[in-house]
């Protein structure tokens, strides 16, 4: 059963990721991106990371994609429909080199990590204890990184507003 769910989620993620890349209209790319994020949240659930799955749904499938859709909505992008790169030969070269990277990556992964199965899974804390453990990690062990992220987010708020506001609002 777990296997069936995993393969279903894998197919969902891969097909919708291909959709993001191949579909010409940016709004459909954004919708396929939502589908991919939901699949990734399902993968997190299958890895017992329930809280992360929730955060994934709220932050990615909710907030980030809404931001993309808002920006797509602001512009009139009819001319952009056919805008892949100019030469097909260049595209082919790029895709082939990424395929090479992929083959090297996957063969090395299979070579190194092929022997860990479900029976090797360590036991985790149950239910709310898992979240408690996560929180104590975040706020005790990694509290410095947490503070740095806070400062980064503050900077990003100021930077994004000042970038988008330069010379009069969002109206192009």
């Amino acid at each position: 059963m777990e296997n069936i769910v995993f393969y279903f989620l894998e197919a969902l993620i891969l097909l919708s990721a291909l959709g993001v890349v191949l579909v010409t209209s940016p709004i459909y790319s954004a919708l396929f991106l939502v589908l991919t994020m939901i699949g990734v949240a399902g993968i997190f659930v299958s890895l017992d990371a329930f809280f992360l799955a929730g955060v994934q749904l709220v932050v990615y499938a909710g907030a980030v994609t809404v931001m993309f859709v808002m920006v797509v909505m602001l512009f009139n992008l009819d001319k952009e429909k056919k805008a892949f790169s100019k030469g097909t030969a260049g595209n082919f070269l790029k895709a082939a080199s990424v395929g090479l990277i992929w083959s090297v990556l996957s063969t090395s992964l299979l070579y190194v990590f092929s022997d860990l199965g479900k029976e090797d899974l360590p036991r985790l804390a149950e239910g709310s204890l898992a979240i408690k453990e996560l929180a104590s990690h975040l706020f005790l062990k990694y509290v410095f990184g947490f503070e740095v992220i806070c400062i980064l987010l503050l900077l990003v708020i100021v930077g994004a507003v000042s970038l988008a506001r330069a010379k009069g609002g969002t109206h192009a």
Partner: peptide
């Protein structure tokens, strides 16, 4: 499904 499946999926995405 084992660890390598997740890693391969991640590599493909």
């Amino acid at each position: 499904v084992g660890l390598s499946h997740y890693l391969l999926l991640s590599a493909m995405v």
